[in-house]
Design a binder for these strands. Structure first.
Length: 820
RNA sequence: GCCGAAGUGGCGGAAUAGGCAGACGCGCACGACUCAAAAUCGUGUACCCUCGGGUAUGUGGGUUCGAUUCCCACCUUCGGCACCA
C-alpha cells in the first residue's frame, strides 16, 4: 500500500481526530511516567548522577512560573540522564521555615505547621501535573523534627568546636519585622523581607565564625566547575585583602592604637587617624567631651541607610587624643568619624589623604594636612584629588625613599616587623554570621544557659528540641522570640550540674535548614546520623546544582562552609572536599510586558493556568524554547501556541505512520539521526531552546520529504523529545509499538554514517566577498574544487579583474580567491 | 567607582577552535479550504537598489584572503558589590 504523506492527509476533515488532547494523554500516562525509572537506587552499579535544583519555599500561592521553568529544565536534564543509563538522584523537598508562614499564622491564628502541610501538598500536586520526575519518596522538610534534629546537631558541633559564640553586638534591626538581620539580609539599608529601613541595635546574639573558613571558601572554588560569575561573586563577597597591622602610640596614655592598612608604604604620609564612633578608645577616653558625646550618639542612632546617604559628605569630630606616627615621629591628631566601620579591620585607620580619596575628602573638609609621599610618573594636582594608584616613586619616606610603590609595600612591612610595630596580615569583608532570629517559626537553637555553668549544649540524646505550641506568634517588643513567653518550656535544668537553667529562645535563620539538605537526600530517613557515610560517598558530590543568582553568595557560601566544617569533623567522605561540582544559573521569566512579574504590575503568569489550557507538554516545551536557560525572557502566549501546533503536527505524524510497513527513506533517516545527535548534545549543556528548534526543523524536514516514516525511526524521534514532552512522548511511544515506558528506554544510538553528508555546499569568495556556492564531495581535492569554482560565471568575471595571487581552501567549508 | 554578563530583523532568539549572518518560533502579507469566519495547510518575509549589485550583528579603529566570533578604545543595558581603609 502506498503511503500517504501526513501533509496531504492534513487537508481532510479527519485531521480533527488528531487534535492533540493533552488531558487524555495525561490521564492515560501520568502513572506510567511516574513509575518509569524514577527512583534513585543506593549503591547501584550504574554510574550515579546527582541532579539538584534548589528546593522551594512552599508559599501559599503555589508554584510560580520561575519554579516551573527551573524545575522543568532540571527535569529535562534528569530524564535525559536516565535514558543514558545513569542512576539518577533527582530529589525535592521543602525549605518551609520562614517569615511568610509565620506572618500568615499571626494574621489568621492558624498553626504554621498546618499551613505548611497544606502548602507542600499543593506544591507536590502541581509538580506532578508539570510532569516533574522527582523522587517523591525522598522528600525532606526542614520543619520536620526528625530533620531539624540534625540542623540542631550541626549547631552543637559548631559550638563544641568554638565556632559558635554568644556576643552582644550592634546588629541590623528591622523595626517592622522586629527581627535582627545579618548584613547580607539588608539590601541598600532596607530589610530584605519587608523593605522597610533598618536601624541598629545591640542584642546578645549567637554568632558563627565563618570567617575562620574564609580562605578555604576561596581556595575550594578551584575544585569546582562553577560558572565564572558565581566564583567571582563569592570571591568578591569574601573580599580578602592583604595588608598590615600597625601600632601607633597615643600621647599621654598607656595605650596603643592598632590599625589595618593595605598600603603600609604610605605610612610616611599619614597625617591623622580616624576611629569608628563605637571604638573602645572612644568609649573609654573621649565621651567627657560634649561634642564627641553628641557625635557618637547621633551616628549611633543613624541607620545604615542614613550613613550611606552622606557617603560623600563626611562628618566627624576631633577626639581630643593625639598619636605618634611611628615612621616620622610626628604628633598627629586622632579624629572620630562614622565613615570608619567598627566591624572591618580594627575599627580604626591611619589617614593618608594624599593617596586615599576618602581620607582626602575628610582632610579637605576639616583642614588637615595633605602630604604627598608618592611621585606619580606624570603630573598630579593634589589640591584636586588624592593619588591612589600604585604607580610612582616614594618620596619623603625615610628608608623606602626612591622605591617604586610595588617594591615599597613589602619593604615597609619588613621595616615594621623589624621595629616591632607591625606585621603583615589579611582582612576580609566577610563578617561572622549572626545566627539568632527572634522568631517562632524556625529551628530552636539547642542551648541552655545555666547560672553556674554558663552556656551548655542540649545533650544529643535530647535532640531534637521541639518547637512547643504557642498561642501567640508575634515577636515581643523587647526583641525576644515568642518562645520567651512560654515559661514551662523556657525553664529547664542544666545538663551539666542539674541546677535551674533557661533555654535559648531565639531560633535559627532561614539558611540553617538549607545548609545541608542536599546531604539528607542521600539518606532521608536515617534516625542515627544526618546521613550514612557510605551513602554520602556513593552519591556525593552534587553533579549539577541548578539555582538562582540571588543565592550565589549567601546560600552557596553558607552551605559550602557547613560542608567544609562537616568535612573537618569526618562526617562527610574525606575524598570529597566540596559539596557541589557544577553550578548552573537559571534564567528569569518576565511578564508579557517585559517587566518583572509582580502583583502590582498585574502581569503575573501562573503556570497552572497554562497547563490547563495548553497542557503540560506544550507548556514545558515552550518554557524551554523561550531562550537560553540562563537568560532573562518575556512570556509570550502566542509563541506558546506555536509550540503547541508543533506538538499537534508531531502527533498527526505519529497517528498516520503508526501502522506503516514501508521503510524510511535515506534522507528522512538522516534527518532523524541528525536530530538525535544534536538534541543529545544540547540536553547535557542545558541548551534546551536549540533542542526544541532542531526537533521542529526535523518535523518540517520530514514533511518536505513526503512524510513517510517507519515506526522504527519515528520512535527515535519520540525518544528524543521524551525529556521535554514526557506525557506526549509516552503515548506516542505506545502507539508506535515501543516496549515499556519511553522514559525507561535507552537513548537511541546514532549511525555516524547517516549524520555525515557525502556532498556539502561550500561558499566561494573573491577578495572576501561571497560570489557563489558550489556542491562538492566532502573529501574533494583543492584542485578539483578550484577548477569547478573558476568555471562558475558569477565567480570567473571577478577573477578576470586582475591576477589571482592566492587561493585558500578550507576543506568542506569555503574556497577563497585573492585577486589583485 | 569595582566585579560579572550582554548588545544581531517588527519581536523572542540561532550561528563563535574565524568560513554562505538571521536556524527555529512569533508577527505580518498573499494564497488554498469555507457561504463566511475561526482553525488548519501552503508560499513569502533584514535593508537599499538604476536588478548588475550594494549595505547590514551597539560605535570607532585594528589583525586577516575572510570577523557576530579575535585585539584595542568607547557607548548603552542588565545583574551583583560598594565609605571594606
Amino acid at each position: 500500500m502506498k503511503s500517504v504523506s501526513f501533509k496531504a492527509r492534513a487537508r481532510y476533515p479527519i485531521k480533527l481526530l488528531f487534535k492533540y488532547n493533552w488531558k487524555k494523554v495525561k490521564n492515560i500516562h501520568i502513572k506510567e511516567d511516574a513509575m518509569a525509572h524514577r527512583h534513585a537506587i543506593d549503591f547501584d552499579k550504574r554510574e550515579k548522577k546527582y541532579v539538584l535544583a534548589e528546593f522551594p519555599y512552599p508559599s501559599g500561592s503555589g508554584l510560580h512560573i520561575g519554579h516551573a521553568f527551573t524545575f522543568t529544565g532540571a527535569d529535562v536534564y534528569a530524564r535525559f540522564q536516565r535514558m543514558l543509563g545513569k542512576n539518577v538522584l533527582f530529589p525535592i523537598g521543602w525549605d518551609a521555615f520562614g517569615l511568610p508562614t509565620e506572618n500568615y499564622a499571626i494574621k489568621t491564628g492558624r498553626k504554621p505547621q498546618d499551613v505548611t502541610s497544606e502548602n507542600t501538598a499543593t506544591f507536590q500536586a502541581q509538580m506532578e501535573r508539570l510532569g516533574l520526575s522527582f523522587d517523591y519518596e525522598r522528600i525532606v522538610n526542614t520543619t520536620d523534627p526528625s530533620y531539624y534534629k540534625w540542623t540542631q546537631w550541626i549547631f552543637i558541633k559548631l559550638f563544641e568546636k568554638g565556632l559558635a559564640y554568644k556576643q552582644e553586638m550592634p546588629i541590623n534591626w528591622c523595626p517592622s519585622c522586629k527581627v535582627g538581620l545579618a548584613n547580607e539580609e539588608v539590601i541598600n539599608g532596607n530589610c530584605e523581607r519587608c523593605g522597610s529601613p533598618t536601624t541598629r541595635r545591640r542584642i546578645s546574639q549567637w554568632v558563627v565564625r565563618i570567617t575562620e573558613y574564609a580562605d578555604r571558601l576561596i581556595d575550594g572554588l578551584e575544585q569546582t566547575d562553577f560558572i565564572e560569575k558565581v566564583k567571582a561573586a563569592q570571591i568578591n563577597w569574601i573580599g580578602r585583602s592583604e595588608g598590615a597591622r600597625v601600632k601607633f602610640k597615643l600621647v599621654g596614655l598607656d595605650e596603643e592604637l592598632e590599625i589595618f592598612t593595605t598600603r603600609p608604604d604610605t605610612l610616611w604620609g599619614c597625617t591623622f587617624m580616624v576611629l569608628a564612633p563605637e571604638h573602645h578608645l572612644v568609649q573609654e577616653y573621649c565621651l567627657q567631651n560634649p561634642g564627641v558625646k553628641e557625635y557618637v550618639e547621633t551616628s549611633h542612632a543613624k541607620s545604615d541607610m542614613e550613613r550611606m546617604e552622606v557617603a560623600y559628605e563626611k562628618t566627624g569630630v576631633y577626639s581630643g587624643l593625639s598619636a605618634i606616627n611611628p615612621a616620622t615621629g610626628e604628633v598627629i591628631p586622632v579624629w572620630i568619624s562614622d565613615f570608619v566601620l567598627l566591624t572591618y579591620g580594627t575599627g580604626a585607620i591611619m589617614s593618608v589623604p594624599g593617596h586615599d580619596q576618602r581620607d582626602w575628602d575628610f582632610a579637605t573638609r576639616f583642614g588637615l594636612e595633605i602630604r604627598p609621599i608618592i611621585q606619580p610618573f606624570s603630573g598630579w594636582d593634589f589640591d584636586k584629588a588624592a593619588y591612589p594608584d600604585q604607580e610612582g616613586i616614594m618620596i619623603n619616606s625615610g628608608p623606602i625613599n626612591g622605591m617604586p610603590v610595588k617594591e615599597a609595600i613589602p619593604a615597609a612591612i619588613a621595616w615594621l616587623r623589624e621595629k616591632g610595630i607591625g606585621e603583615a596580615t589579611v582582612s576580609y569583608h566577610l563578617r561572622d554570621w549572626i545566627f539568632s532570629r527572634q522568631h517562632y517559626w524556625g529551628e530552636p537553637i539547642p542551648m541552655i544557659l545555666c547560672e553556674t555553668c554558663g552556656w551548655q549544649p542540649v545533650p544529643e540524646a535530647d535532640l531534637p528540641v521541639r518547637l512547643p505550641d504557642v498561642e501567640q506568634y508575634e515577636p515581643t517588643d523587647t526583641g525576644e522570640s515568642p518562645l520567651a513567653n512560654i515559661t514551662e518550656w523556657v525553664n529547664t535544668s542544666c545538663p551539666k550540674c542539674g541546677g535551674p537553667a533557661r533555654r535559648e529562645t531565639d531560633t535559627m535563620p532561614n539558611w540553617a535548614g538549607s545548609d545541608w539538605y542536599f546531604l539528607r537526600y542521600t539518606d532521608p530517613f536515617n534516625p542515627n546520623a544526618l546521613a550514612n557515610k557510605e551513602k554520602l560517598a556513593y552519591w556525593m558530590p552534587v553533579d549539577v546544582y541548578i539555582g538562582g543568582d540571588e543565592h550565589n553568595t549567601l546560600h552557596l557560601l553558607y552551605s559550602r562552609f557547613i560542608y567544609q566544617f562537616l568535612f573537618d569533623l569526618g562526617i562527610v567522605p574525606s575524598h570529597i572536599p566540596e559539596p557541589y561540582y557544577r553550578r548552573i544559573s537559571h534564567g528569569v521569566i518576565l511578564g508579557p510586558d517585559n517587566q518583572r512579574m509582580s502583583k502590582s504590575h498585574g502581569n503575573v503568569i501562573v503556570p497552572e493556568d497554562f497547563i490547563h489550557e495548553y497542557g503540560t507538554d506544550a507548556t514545558r516545551c515552550y518554557m524551554m524554547f523561550m531562550g537560553a536557560f540562563d537568560a532573562t525572557m518575556a512570556w509570550n502566549e502566542r509563541a506558546l501556541r506555536g509550540v503547541k501546533r508543533f506538538l499537534e503536527r508531531f502527533e498527526k505524524l505519529v497517528d498516520t505512520q503508526a501502522g506503516t510497513k514501508q521503510s524510511t527513506s535515506q534522507p528522512i533517516k538522516a534527518l532523524i539521526h541528525k536530530a538525535v545527535a544534536k538534541v543529545g548534545s544540547d540536553y547535557p549543556n542545558f541548551k534546551f531552546n536549540t533542542a526544541v528548534a532542531k526537533l521542529m526543523e526535523t518535523l518540517n524536514g520530514i514533511s518536505d520529504q513526503g512524510g513517510s516514516v517507519h515506526p522504527v525511526e519515528l520512535r527515535m524521534l519520540v525518544q528524543a523529545i521524551a525529556p521535554l514532552a514526557p506525557f506526549f512522548a509516552e503515548e506516542a511511544w505506545q502507539k508506535l509499538g515501543g516496549e515499556g515506558s519511553v522514559h525507561a528506554s535507552d537513548w537511541p544510538e546514532v549511525d555516524p554514517h547517516l549524520i555525515k553528508d557525502d556532498t556539502v555546499e561550500i561558499s566561494i569568495q573573491v577578495n572576501g566577498k561571497l560570489r557563489g556556492t558550489l556542491m562538492i564531495d566532502r573529501d574533494a581535492e583543492q584542485a578539483s574544487v578550484e577548477e569547478k569554482a573558476r568555471a562558475i560565471e558569477s565567480v570567473s568575471k571577478y577573477l578576470q579583474n586582475g591576477t589571482v595571487r592566492k587561493v585558500i581552501y578550507i576543506p568542506a567549508k569555503t574556497i577563497s580567491f585573492v585577486v589583485k
